[in-house]
Nucleic acid binder design. Structure first.
Lengths: 242, 242
DNA sequence: CGCGGCCTTGAAGTGATTCAACTTGGGTGG
DNA sequence: CCACCCAAGTTGAATCACTTCAAGGCCGCG
């Protein structure tokens, strides 16, 4: 099990530095470090006693499903994101979380979250902060789905992921990054049909907005995508990591 | 100014009972009690130093706007809801909040929120809980906009509001309640055009799913609307009130 | 009386969905 | 080792839900 004192994520510089004391507290709170394969269900809708997790590496997504099977992806999760805060607060999660790639996650038993509030107010504040930030992401996604046209939606998705990955050091030379999403995932996140997603993406590629090969996406001109999508970026100041 | 010890909202029975001590703490934290007219901007996008509020009476909505003017309503706010938690956590709000009716709100200076975390862990937990609950509402709205057809969206909106108002004691005999929304608000919340919203609502009325007169909406059969919309209700256990 | 906000309705246009078929590539089992 | 299979991507065609444009009605208010 990886100790929080040796957390590779912290060393990316994307996160707010913490006192040694705080890190040790988080380390004590951490119960396990799990590795799960792609497709694993990290949070199951309706399941009781869900734990809180921090995504350490890999991608995941949070989704809701209607009784008749229609699915909406609410949010993509990247390293450093909390998983299951809502579920840990209320009794039962109304959503699910599934790993998109092989992931590794830190397990923070929900009961200890309560202790955190009692003894480490600054860390408790950070948890709330992360929850608020996640809500901002959902806000932006709702705006995308509600008010942007198909091409703008895809542009907004690509730019949003690009910016988040940039902060994590996961974008390489020439603005390219690994994108482990199928077109079905993209369609489900953007409220589009699979076919229309495919055709719209093909058009954006033809127009040179992005290119794709071998699971990697390249954005030759992120600014062009950004203005196409009218994307509203979150401030990228340092954020806490629990 | 209304003292928290005499809070009429608490007496509705919709909220988690608190110790006298906690109520006095909140009362001390409260800086003012404002009355604002319909249309007032409670949170202005991009404004610095926004405070945290609790909506005491009336309706409001939270929204985002694209640079070109398209608007998405993210969430409707009803009495007891926190206003501006996200804004209070990060520096600058990425969204706005506007009063739909005349409202009265309790002002909780953001600096004192930090004290709350230091001295009143249980209340701090409640704040986080309320933030998580709000995110659940946005999740549901995203699912509505992304994956439901127009008639389903309207049904989901009506049922969602109905259930929330029911808990607050704001639904009267025969399942009717005041709905201070124009069709433009509904269109902006559901990601539809005004014209299509109008036609779809007319159809639902013709089919007897709801009726409207004098600013009041009546749901003769909430269950029918609920199954039309496949609405995913939040648990309606007691929630905290700060 | 006239104006503006809100609701309503018809008609035309289009962006997105649905249906259907075919390609490609990696993985598996005979 | 090849045949087959299945998941994922692609493409064309028909249809439909929703948007846009346009016009008119109702009502409260200055």
């Amino acid at each position: 099990m990886i100790r929080c004192t040796e957390c590779a994520l912290r060393r990316t510089g994307a996160f707010k530095p913490l006192d040694e004391e705080d890190i040790l507290y988080i380390d004590a709170m951490k119960r396990a470090h799990l590795a799960l394969p792609a497709g694993a269900e990290i949070i199951v809708p309706g399941a009781e006693n869900t734990e809180l997790y921090t995504l350490y590496s890999g991608w995941a997504y949070r989704y809701k499903e209607l009784p008749d099977g229609r699915r909406q992806i609410l949010h993509f999760l990247l390293p450093g994101d909390l998983i299951g805060l809502q579920a840990a607060m209320s009794e039962v999660p109304l959503y699910g979380v599934i790993a998109l790639t092989p992931v590794s996650i830190c397990v923070l038993p929900r009961k200890r979250i309560w202790n955190l509030f009692g003894t480490m107010p600054e860390l408790a504040f950070d948890v709330t902060w992360l929850g608020a930030r996640e809500e901002s992401h959902v806000d932006e996604n709702l705006t995308t789905v509600g008010r942007r046209a198909a091409a703008e939606r895809i542009a907004a998705l690509l730019v949003g992921l690009y910016r988040r990955l940039l902060g994590l050091g996961l974008v390489s030379e020439g603005n390219s990054f690994a994108l482990p999403l199928t077109q079905q995932h993209i369609a489900d996140a953007l409220g589009l049909s699979l076919v229309h997603t495919n055709k719209t993406m093909a058009r954006l590629r033809r127009l040179g907005f992005y290119s794709q090969s071998d699971g990697m996406v390249t954005l030759p001109n992120p600014h062009a995508l950004e203005s196409l999508s009218q994307f509203d970026a979150l401030d990228d100041r340092l954020r806490p990591l629990i």
